[in-house]
Design a protein around this nucleic acid. Structure first.
Lengths: 150, 150
DNA sequence: TATTGTTATACTCTATAACTATA
DNA sequence: TATAGTTATAGAGTATAACAATA
């Protein structure tokens, strides 16, 4: 075929369209709680542990240390995260949730639940399960493991 | 359930993870041709017509006129797009591809084909068809029509 | 020398709104 | 007054790399 394929000929096009719409909806919901999607991901990661080094968080979120540093600045300023110096290694730090941050995570998680339910209610149970399965299959076979942020 | 749901409990999470990975791969490919994904979408839209007003393009791409204006600046500077004044309405302009721009679109379209084929080769024909169908179904039922850019 | 984290720079995209010229 | 397009500002994310302190 010599023709120039249309944008809509690609699965990636539809994937991006749907993904952007879901993310935009979610971004607006968490903005109502004063945080961005990246900040939510950051807070959620800290929720499961006592504390975590910025570098570990960077690995886990697939971001650079520089990006984590800026994100942490914002969250400290918002009173949701605390920085501590590591007593054993004076180069190192650890990050953890403040009481306020820990209180905020379930609220944000609830918004994520609602957003997902709302958005994918356009599919019936069978269709939704199939979509879920295909996406996980793709992620697994392509070796994806980075937490998506934007 | 009183628990805080995990990020990976949401279909939107997997959607974003896969979509980001596909888009990042594609962004790197078109960067090799000196354009961004938004610029590719812009060029592709102009390919089908003689000329188009910035405001029409803004509607079509779901971007503001300001964003289109900046994008057009860059593409004009790269020699891929031309601006013309409308002789009938002196407020209005029209945008069209230069010869170089018109030559570039098939090359970029080919990269889009390759990226899609490459990425979704992780699925077999049946799975891929199912994914395509579910995404289109979702886009239709949610009334999505904006061209995804990022 | 290598590593931890910070900082600086630059670029893309987004959103809002002020602004100019024209209708 | 309304419309077409530009411009300014600010915020969020990305990437690269220089940097200070410490190991």
């Amino acid at each position: 075929m010599a023709g120039v394929s249309d944008l809509s000929a690609h699965t990636g096009y539809w994937l991006r369209m749907v993904s952007n719409a879901v993310s935009l909806d979610f971004a607006r919901k968490v903005a109502g709680e004063g945080v961005t999607v990246a900040e939510w991901t950051f807070l959620r990661a800290l929720y499961d542990v006592e504390a975590m080094a910025p570098s570990a968080l960077a690995d886990r979120m697939g971001m650079t240390r520089g990006a984590i540093s800026k994100l942490a600045d914002r969250l400290v300023e918002k009173g949701l995260v605390s920085r501590f110096d590591d007593p054993d290694d004076r180069r190192a730090q650890s990050l953890s949730l403040t009481a306020e941050g820990r209180q905020k995570v379930p609220i944000l998680a609830r918004l994520a639940d609602i957003n997902d339910a709302e958005y994918f209610s356009a599919l019936n149970a069978e269709e939704r399960l199939a979509l879920d399965r295909l996406l996980k299959l793709l992620a697994e076979r392509r070796g994806l493991k980075t937490v998506p942020v934007d």
